[in-house]
Structure formats: C-alpha cells, structure tokens
Design a protein around this nucleic acid. Structure first.
Lengths: 334, 334
DNA sequence: TCATTATACGTAACCGGTTACGTAAATTAA
DNA sequence: TTAATTTACGTAACCGGTTACGTATAATGA
C-alpha cells in the first residue's frame, strides 16, 4: 500500500507524533525538522489517511444529502449549492437518492450512520417520525431544506403558503377568474396535515371572491410528466380554465409542453405560472413566469447552518426566505 | 459516543472477535451465542463504525464521481444511474463538482485520495495527463464515462464521431444544404486533438458534397446559454442557415429558446437536432429531435465496470455504445 | 551561577474495528 | 478407551493516524 506516517517518521528520523504535529500545524517543533519532514513527505508522496484520522478525530469531513430524486432541476440546483459550500469548507458530500421511498430512506440513514457523517441535509423531504427518531439517535446536526417539520429540527425554506397565495393573486390581478392548480402528491404531506401551497392557492381565491371547486385541483407527483398528464385531466374536468398555477416549475414545464402539443397557445389561451424559478424557466417557449423562492440562497443557507451546527454545537434558528414573482411570458391579462 | 464493539462484547460476555465474526457471518460460533449477541446488538442499538472497519479492510464502500457541472441534465442523469448501481452494491457516492477546472479537479482527486475511495468515475471529463498521473498513483480503479483517452484507462462512451456524422446526414437527407453547428469548448479537447463530434459533422458534409466553411461552426461551452448566444453569433455570420446541429441537447435547448424569442419558427424556418437525447427533449416546444447515445445504459455500464474492477482487479475492456436518432418535431424537410 | 521555564521532541495508549494464532472442550475415528 | 480432529471461542496484534504525558535540552531570570 501507500506510505504511512510511520514511514515518514522513520525516513525523517523523528517520531510519528512529530510528523503529526507538523501536518496539523500544532507547533512544538523546530523549523529545521519541519523542513526535513516536509521534504520527506514530498519525496515519498505521502498522503495521510482520512480514514485513520477520522477514527480518532470523530470527524469525517463528509456530509450526507438526501434528495427525493436527481432528475429534478430544483434538487440538482440544491445539490449544486450544497456541494459548493461543503467543498469550500473542506467537506465532501455523499448523495443519497431516496425516491421519497420510506424504506430506502431508512436504509440510507443507516448507511450514513455507519459512515459516521458529520451532518445531514434533507432536501425537499417530509420528515417522518421514523426519520426523525433515527437522526435524533445518530446525534449529528440535521437541517431540512425546503421543508418544515413539527419536530425540533432546523429548517430553511420559503414561506410556501404566502408565495402560493401571491402567485395565485397575481393571476387574479391579471383578470383571470377560472384558475386551476396542479399540485404534487397529496400523500407526501401526511405529516404536515396541510399542503401549504395548495392552501395558499385556495385562500387567494376565496379572499378574492372567486368560487372554488375541488375539481380545479389536480394532484399528481412532482415531475414534468405529471404536468402533462395533469393538464389533460384538469382540462377534461373543467375545460374553460384560463390560467393554471402549478406547484412547481417542472409541472409548469409539463403544462407548457402538453399545451404546445395540444395546440393550446400559451399565454394567449392559457396562462401558466410555476413556482421555484428554476433556471430552465428562462429557456422555455414561452419563458415560464414563476414565483422565485431564492432556492440558491436556500441551499447555501442550509449548508452554512449545518456547518455552523457541526462546528459550534449551538442551536440555530430556522430560516424563512423571501419570494418574488419573476415575470416572463407565460402569463397574460384576461 | 455511541456503543462500540467492546460494549457489545462485554454485555454479551464474549470477546470482540466473536462479535465481529457474527457480524460478518464468518462462522466459528454457536447458534446460542449468535442469538445472544444479536440480542445485545439490538438492545444497545449498536451500529459498527464504517470508519474503523475501513481502516483494517482497506475498503470504504465509497466511490467518487467527478462531474464538470451539476446543472446539466446529462450529467445528473449520469449521476442518477451511477448512484443507483452503487447503492445496490452497497456503496455510497461522493459527488465532486469540478467545473472542468484543472486546479479544482486536482484538489478533488487529492481529497478523494485521502478519503481512500474504492473507485472513481470521471464523467464527461477530458483526462489530462496530470489527472492520469495522479489516479495512477492513487491505485484505484478508474473509468471514464462519456469520454475517451489515450491513456490506458477504460472508458464507456458512444461513438461520437459516427453519431455526429449520422445526425448531420439526417439533416442532409431532409434536404438541408445550409447547415450550421454549435459546439462546446474547443480547448476542452486539447488531449484528444480532434473533436469527434465536430469531425463527424464536417465529414458528413464533405461526403455529401456540401461545401463547408469554418464560419458555420460556433464554439462556446456546453450550457443552454451557449445555445442562445451561439445561435445569435451563427446567424449573424451566416443568416441563410436552414438547419443547426448542436453538440448536445442543452445547446439545442438554447437554440430553441433563442429562436422562439427571435420569432424564428422551429422547424418551419430552422431545423434543430441535438445530441444525447436527455429527458428534457421530450418536453421542449417543439420536442427536440436528438441523436440518442443511450446515456442511461452508459452510466450503468460504467458503474458496473468500475465495481467489477474493484472486486476482481481484472483489466476490463472499453465499451462503445450504440446511437440512434430519436425523431421528434424540431426538424422538417427542406 | 543555579533555579526556573520554555522548547522540542519521543513513548505509548487510544480510536473501533478485524484477524492470525492459540487453546480448551466437544466430537469423531480407531 | 484413547488419539485425532473439529468447534467455539479468547488473546493480542494490527490498521494509520492523534494526543496526553514525560523528559532532555535550551533559553531565561534572579
């Protein structure tokens, strides 16, 4: 195998303790021996083993990130932000693709436990009691990204209710009266009881005296595909819709695609507004108007929060970020 | 901290060796003690430390994946496939976002070296000599995904040259004579000398007696943005183009977007064909015709190859996968 | 000058597992 | 019945680092 600290110590005629001290800038050695040891390290091309170091240090410089999927742009943008922060701090990230699947998620948590990760970020994941109990037991800092929880786990998220309310109101202000919504999976939210984005949608309607009918909401999952099938179902049930609010941009993209393929002009015949403001919105035809939830900031905040918890063991406070409507070309006045 | 194997051994009145044997199904213990130990493990909720285990085993059950970016769909689809294979085999994957940046890449390699990963996959990355020398030194199995190399490192890729040739020929057969190309970064390929997708494009033209002019190729990077700026530059230089072949689908998406915003109808006024056939192609307006390089299969093959090398230390052969044109609606006859 | 303190190390235990080797007890063979 | 073999463990070294503690030497102070 590769050289060890012992090899370095021997060839440099010092003890392993000295080598270790030099490697970690701890002082307690002369300039001369430092140079000598550093030379030997270079010559042998020695790299300390993070494994061995982790064993004593109880620090692996590795964090885990649980994501419900890897094909969603929002999620990969999260991952991107987290990875960037982690790398700057000197940590690596292990990605775990849970598929929102309970058993797979638990398996991943066990795996990360065995790997002795320093911290954990759950992105766009509903924190079930089972998960909470486990991470509690693991005893590592956890933060939720784009999710909240009744359990005492810090989260970084947007005010989904308000954002959805505002997004819907935007459509109303544009003169729309027949507005539908395509939402993600209902069951995902068992924990939260309420689906905030749906509630925001409903309340915006009723506050503006627009009659609401349950059939105006279509529930699916969160992917583009769900947008295309969602639009079909929705228009079957209520054909005179003039605007659609989608729970996220992927669904919105699906709606755009389905509309194109059905010859429904957006925005002339149908206005569409998404949520999250993922980068792809800019490049749709037409560019997709969206409620931006500053998700770049969100990911970085979450990562920074987690590292702060790792380093100082202090409790940190939740963080609710701002939202903002990014007007593009998928919505027009009625 | 958490319980250790010693705690388990003590409370079960056996030695740590016995506990270890039981944990690893190695035999050499009676059913009775096995049950006893297993009970204690459950009671204490003991989980062995992967770190300690890794120290003796020289196996971390962790692999590294280097990717040039995390916002490209192709790359995340790769990542998805690799993660899936790895998880089934019981390995975790560390993502490293290199931004195609030499220094950052080297830093990551060192980090992964320190972490003592079992294997490494370089996705869509040109293997510079510097990288090769380093991974050689690391002594772990490496495989290139969607890349080739003059160095003796196994790769899994498509026949880019032929695929590009065929994609271009498809446009020609549709009657197009004024065809442009938008390619990725020229400098990326220093190592390979030739840019296979560009060569395929050129050769398809000349083999079909279509005059070729260097100004018909626009070089940028690989993102959607480069597609939009690329189209503008290209049309400035040669305005009578009727078709565009893009080095990848992201660039193709950018072209679609720029065309939409400039009022250029696709495919009526401009045909566009991409490469890779990422999932998003299906949802563009219009859906983007693309040369499919079976990248799902590619990622899985690469991962399986790597694990085979990890487990058997045998040399494996390269793998060149098939391509196929997926006709959608962004190309029409001239 | 001698006592005191600081500096520059070395020794060895420890982190939490794995495993080669040794041995008493149980089983089988002769 | 006794010898040979197998089974079921325990002991202790080892993986490759870190670090508490001890000590000889050098530097400082009185």
């Amino acid at each position: 195998m590769a050289y060890t600290i012992k090899d370095v110590a021997q060839t440099a005629n010092v003890s392993t303790a000295t080598v270790s001290r030099i490697l970690n800038d701890q002082g307690g050695y002369s300039e001369k021996t430092k140079r000598k040891v550093l030379n030997v390290i270079q010559e042998l091309d020695y790299y300390p083993s993070g494994i061995a170091r982790g064993l004593t240090n109880k620090r692996t410089n590795t964090i885990g990130v649980l994501v419900p999927n890897l094909t969603s742009s929002l999620v990969t943008e999260f991952l991107d932000g987290i990875e960037s922060v982690a790398h700057n701090i000197g940590s690596s990230v292990i990605v775990c693709h849970t598929e929102s699947h309970g058993i797979k998620t638990m398996k991943y948590l066990q795996l990360l436990h065995e790997k002795r990760i320093d911290g954990l970020i759950l992105a766009s994941t509903v924190l079930k009691k089972e998960y909470y109990d486990y991470v509690e037991k693991m005893g590592v800092p956890v933060v939720l990204l784009s999710a909240y929880s009744e359990f005492p786990v810090p989260y970084v998220t947007a005010n989904d209710y308000e954002a959805a309310y505002t997004g819907t109101k935007y459509l109303i202000q544009k003169g729309h009266k027949k507005i539908g919504m395509i939402s993600g999976n209902k069951e995902e939210w068992i924990a939260g009881n309420l689906i905030p984005r749906v509630e925001g949608f409903k309340d915006a309607l009723s506050d503006n005296n627009i009659s609401f009918n349950e059939s105006c909401i279509e529930y699916g999952k969160f992917s583009i595909d769900d947008g295309v099938t969602g639009l079909k179902h929705l228009l079957n049930r209520v054909p005179d819709l003039t605007a659609i609010f989608t729970e996220n941009d992927e669904i919105g993209m699906g709606v755009l695609s389905a509309a194109y393929n059905s010859g429904i002009k957006v925005p002339e015949k149908l206005s569409v507004i998404g949520m999250d403001d993922i980068n792809l919105c800019n490049f749709m035809s037409p560019p997709l108007t969206s409620v931006s939830l500053s998700h770049n900031e969100m990911a970085e905040k979450a990562a920074n929060l987690m590292f702060k918890m790792i380093n100082s063991d202090t409790e940190v406070s939740n963080c609710i970020l701002d939202y903002q409507i990014i007007e593009r070309q998928s919505v027009c006045s009625q």
